[in-house]
Design a protein around this nucleic acid. Structure first.
Lengths: 202, 202
DNA sequence: TTCGTCATGGGACTTGAGTCCCACGAACGG
DNA sequence: CCGTTCGTGGGACTCAAGTCCCATGACGAA
């Protein structure tokens, strides 16, 4: 990671500082389950706290930038076939496996996104890739529902399957993680089925 | 249940102090959209901050205690009939109207419940009444699904309809509050329909 | 070579959550 | 009536999130 000492100039400097912060935060996230404070990330990046805040005005911004992007292009197994229900169930299970794997970070991100007042809520929030994955899983329905119908169905499914729902199902309803995922898969299929039965209703 | 302890002296004092804190917090919640700090509630109750923390170890605990309990016994209009789908849709709309009305507090409670580390997450969290209301709405299905089936369906529906989903649908997916509620109602019906079609699948 | 720009560092300050310790005084028990 | 208990108040302290201001020093253009 000792990059390009040849690169000089102020713009490069900024790039490097930013990259160092992101890399440090990313590493700290990977190491301990608990997300780092800004100060911790700054120190790990050998950068002053003040500077860190210059690049990322909030801890949330830093963690968003540090969020290890899942590189997966698709969440569907190769041999999944064309049945929409089977496909969405597979997609949901893959997606939720990832969410459960990174649950601590997911919770923190959710909490931090709830942190600020209504004003800052207007800011563009980072969307995950779930919509894309679900849309792909729903591809066989594109003819029947139309692109817009598929997208809305994907949104509906994402509303059922995610950290938010996981938090409620486990913390409040008392389900195990496995039960929660089962629940979500079942619900997702229910949504697909209704959309399929009544293409105009959504 | 209240026979054991004396009605005078110190125990009464404790009752009064606690009640004053709850009342103050409740009032502050009602006044400003933004939930009060512990210090604010303490001052409003004419009690020291230290004492406030003695009664409620966290802001979350105080807000939970202060949460104005909705007194509604049922969320169903009188003339709703016996069609489970109609009933659940009405219940969901009523419930979500209440959630949207108190959205700021709901968000804060959600955020605070995410606040602490995994250890404190083990503590019994307060459950809302949604499950009860949804169960009531699903009453016509009791024969078909059994009590347990109804409860699990109610849980599934609550996972789809609540602040958590509202937050995602509005903040991330960009839906309006109305659209989000529509979405939830549609999803809830989808779940009921699937449960009804395949009573054993859940 | 000089001079202004600009990324950075350092430290003080604010605010809210929460903890700890000690002192005061009213209530209680003997 | 006296001593203990216990609810309370006050203040100091920690910690993390942010904010602000000023100094410094390298970069880069004239």
């Amino acid at each position: 990671m000792s990059t390009a000492y040849e690169e000089t100039g102020r713009s490069r400097q900024k790039q490097r500082t930013r990259a160092a912060l992101v890399a440090a935060a990313r590493q700290l996230v990977a190491e301990g389950g608990r997300p780092p404070t800004v100060a911790e990330a700054a120190e790990a990046a050998a950068v002053s706290r003040t500077t860190a805040y210059r690049y990322f005005p909030t801890q949330h911004a830093l963690l968003v930038a540090a969020h290890p992007e899942i590189e997966t292009t698709s969440m569907l197994p190769a041999e999944v076939g064309s049945d929409p229900e089977t496909r969405i169930e597979a997609a949901v299970r893959s997606f939720m496996a990832m969410v459960v794997d990174t649950e601590e970070q997911q919770r923190t991100m959710l909490r931090l996104s709830l942190q600020r007042d209504a004003a800052s809520r207007e800011l563009p929030l980072r969307q995950g890739r779930a919509i894309g994955w679900f849309t792909e899983a729903l591809d066989p329905l594109a003819d029947r529902l139309g692109a817009d119908g598929v997208r809305r169905l994907a949104v509906a499914i994402r509303a059922v399957c995610g950290v938010e729902a996981l938090v409620w199902l486990t913390d409040i309803a008392g389900l195990s993680r496995e039960q929660a995922v089962e629940q979500m898969a079942w619900s997702a299929v229910a949504l697909v089925r209704r959309a399929n039965d009544q293409p105009h209703a959504l």
